[in-house]
């Protein structure tokens, strides 16, 4: 075990997987110089055939990822900011997510799309989106949203070795956060939520960047006599529905913390799953903490106002505890 920054863990995963399998190729805008640091050193080590800068041509790049994967390669496509997925969305939504079904299962598309997502750094409305609800809704994409360096590395390796397209979303600006990363080889499974902290009074399900404030909130609540269990989804597709339901069966209360906009958010989906399959366990209404249906503003004070944080999570849990039978 060694402490590593999240971006460093992703970079290690890319180095290891490219060394392991010569069919892994990586391309995208400025991947050689690596704005975020996640692709640093890959071009020097693996050469221009396997790691190359592209023009700013998202519509073509997402389609090319499909064609290169159909041609036998494992493609890592770096899209820089998740908002740029929209520019390249046609091939993601119409080809990548559908080609396997349309061909009756003739094709496998091992593609990993990497992009930074989320707000909190005054990157303003066109560089701050959290688009995983759209991706979840397409049906044919895995969606990984790592919260810790350990999972970032393990989920990236799982994505690259997989047989299907995965969108791997890095929480923007959290690349510098550090955590323990095992020295030995490991993969982090898709579809298994991590229990960040065990508790008995309330389940806090958190996604990606929201795991850290959820953990901090749980710690604060603990000092106030409320035992919160924190679940980190790790992947939204596949979603660990059973793990979430098991936790809610134990605690009877659910708060879902999500950086996506409220309407049709991942939190909405998780809340619906628990309402349908776990209603009998609930001692209180489900609470969703999301971002209002608003474009992300630039001014830090306005941005902070929208994003869920430790205080909002603590507040939501307290309202839930006060309004329900013990």
């Amino acid at each position: 075990m060694a402490r590593k920054r999240l971006i460093q863990a992703i970079n290690e995963a890319l180095h290891e997987e490219m060394a392991r399998d010569p069919k892994v190729i990586l391309f995208g805008e400025d991947v050689e110089i690596s704005m975020f640091g996640d692709t640093a050193g890959l071009h020097d080590r693996f050469g221009p055939d396997r790691v190359r800068n592209t023009p700013i041509s998202e519509a073509s790049l997402t389609g090319m990822a499909v064609g290169a994967a159909a041609g036998g390669y494992r493609v890592v496509l770096h899209m820089m900011f998740a908002n740029f997925l929209y520019t390249g969305f046609d091939a993601i939504a119409n080809q990548m997510a559908k080609l396997r079904l349309m061909t009756g299962g003739q094709i496998e598309l091992p593609i990993t799309i990497v992009a930074g997502y989320g707000g909190g750094r005054s990157t303003a409305a066109q560089h701050s989106d959290t688009p995983y609800p759209l991706l979840m809704n397409l049906g044919g994409l895995n969606v990984a949203v790592p919260a810790t360096p350990r999972d970032a590395k393990g989920l990236m390796k799982t994505a690259i070795r997989g047989r299907d397209p995965t969108v791997f979303l890095e929480a923007g600006g959290r690349g510098g956060e550090s955590g323990e990363v095992p020295d030995e080889e490991y993969l982090t499974p898709f579809g298994e939520a991590a229990v960040g902290r065990e508790g008995t009074d309330v389940t806090i399900v958190a996604i990606g960047s929201m795991v850290r404030p959820a953990m901090r909130a749980a710690k604060l609540l603990d000092g106030q006599g409320i035992s919160a269990e924190v679940l980190d989804c790790r992947t939204l597709v596949p979603l660990d529905e059973d793990g979430i339901l098991r936790s809610v069966a134990k605690t009877g209360r659910l708060v879902v913390v999500d950086e996506a906009r409220d309407r049709c958010s991942a939190a909405s989906h998780i809340a619906a799953v628990v309402a349908e399959r776990g209603f009998g366990s609930l001692a209180a209404p489900i609470r969703r903490l999301t971002v209002p249906d608003t474009a992300m503003p630039y001014a830090p004070v306005a941005e902070k106002h929208l994003l869920p944080d430790r205080e909002k999570i603590v507040g939501a849990v307290k309202v839930l505890m006060a309004g329900s039978a013990p």
Binding site: M64, G67, A91, Q95, Q106
Partner: peptide, 27 residues
């Protein structure tokens, strides 16, 4: 589509096949 024959598919999206072929050309 018949992938075994190199036919990556007809396509309901106008121009949708162009970048797919470009990716296949990269491969």
């Amino acid at each position: 589509a018949d992938v075994s024959k190199g036919i990556l598919g007809a396509n309901g999206i106008v121009a949708g096949g162009i970048p797919i072929a470009a990716g296949a050309a990269l491969a």
